[in-house]
Amino acid sequence: MSPTQRRLDPDQVRRYLAASLGPHPGVADCGPLDGGGFAAVWWVTLDDGRAVVLKVGPPPQVPLLRYERDMIGAEARYLRLVAARAPAVPVPPLLHHGHDPVLGDWLLTGLLPGRTLWDLTRAGAEVGPVRAEFGRALATLHGVTGDRYGYDGGRTGASTWRGAYTAMLDDLLADAADWSVPLPVPAARIRELVDRHAHVLDAVRRPALLHFDGWAGNVLAVDGPDGTPRLSGLVDGERHLWGDPLLDLVSPLLFRRAEDEPDDPLVRAYRAVAPFSLDAGARRRLGLYRLHLYLLMTVEMPSRGITAESDPWRVDRLAELLDAELSDLGGP
């Protein structure tokens, strides 16, 4: 269990439900949901038969990364935004966003049906059609335009995408120093390599709404009439930000390279709706975005209680991937 996750029990869950909906309806049954590493998440069946999800943020004394401030509030804003401006994208309906000195920050949402794309892939299901639907949903999401790049809610952002990206990278490097996270090369060298190529970010002229965390565990699917999985939901939007749509092609192809897989169902379906080039500039931007993601995943490990002993594969794999992206940036 991550140090950022509150320890809940059924009685506490009932307190959150009462603070959200009042004394009625009550809780018929509940239990924890697996998969996340930041908030505590429980499924709840209400007395009236509704299925809902309770997501509770970390206790106030728990140290977080800089961008993680007010992430529960960020998800509430994301859900309202998508419902209002991109209603075709299936996200959980927001029922309540609460804040209390004792209970902290929490969300209550509807429970979307389906299994994760991660589970379906491991089970050997045919996931090409649902990945294509996911690609089209991302293209729709990216049609929503903001007025600033980066994070919302007073967190790191800028008037240009280059400014926002480099500021977010600086935050992660500062977090790495705070948590004594070892990096493949010194932070100053990482910043030097990024600065060498940051001009490619100036091609981005519109702050699109990005989910950012679209790995397979955050994509839900149900069986269609013919038994083929179909997209039923996109969850966990608390890390959303505003920027380059290409950034959203990194997490869905985690540990892979979108530019090397133009025929992946997600990439192909996305480009059919929102065409984009895979020229040298776009490829360099994708490399910068992978660097950002792998750095984030590396820097967050101490705050999640992850060590080389508890998860050696993740530690070694991220070190290898970070080194590869940095080597690419340092090449000719």
Rank of each mutant, 00 (worst) to 15 (best):
V299H: 09
D48S: 06
L173Y: 11
L249R: 13
T307C: 10
L201P: 07
P60Y: 09
R257Y: 11
R122C: 01
A198W: 07
C30D: 15
Q5C: 13
L209H: 06
D202R: 11
F134L: 15
G305P: 02
G287L: 11
T166A: 12
G124F: 06
G237P: 01
G305V: 04
G243H: 08
D316Q: 15
L33D: 12
P332Q: 13
G31R: 05
G36V: 11
R268N: 00
A74Y: 03
R14Y: 05
H99S: 15
R239A: 06
A216H: 06
T307V: 10
H197L: 00
V41D: 06
P229L: 15
L141R: 00
L247W: 09
A84M: 00
A280Q: 12
V219Y: 07
A187Y: 11
R271I: 02
A137R: 02
G49P: 05
F38V: 13
R271H: 09
W106T: 05
L193N: 11
P332W: 11
R283K: 13
L81Q: 13
L318S: 11
D311I: 02
P129E: 14
Y270S: 05
Y16F: 15
L231C: 09
G217V: 03
D263W: 01
P275S: 09
P229N: 14
A188I: 01
Y151V: 00
L288M: 01
M297G: 00
A282I: 02
V82Y: 06
A164Y: 02
V62W: 05
D195Q: 14
W106E: 11
L286S: 08
D202I: 13
A198F: 04
G26E: 08
A221S: 10
F276G: 11
H97V: 07
Q5H: 07
Q61L: 05
V41W: 01
G37Y: 13
W242I: 07
F276V: 12
D236G: 06
V185T: 10
T140K: 01
C30R: 09
W215Y: 15
L288K: 07
L17F: 03
R66Q: 14
L322D: 14
A176K: 02
D323W: 01
L141N: 02
L107F: 14
H292M: 12
P252Q: 12
R191I: 04
L173P: 07
V44M: 06
D311A: 13
G128M: 03
G331I: 02
V41L: 03
D47T: 15
A177F: 00
E126K: 10
D279V: 06
L247S: 04
E300G: 01
D11P: 00
P92F: 06
L241Q: 09
A258R: 02
P58E: 10
V194P: 02
V194G: 08
A51N: 12
C30I: 09
D195G: 14
V299F: 05
G243P: 05
L173N: 09
G330H: 11
P245F: 02
A187H: 07
A123I: 06
V273T: 15
F255Y: 13
D311F: 05
A198N: 08
A164D: 00
A83M: 03
V13K: 11
A188T: 15
V204A: 07
M297I: 03
Y78R: 00
D223K: 09
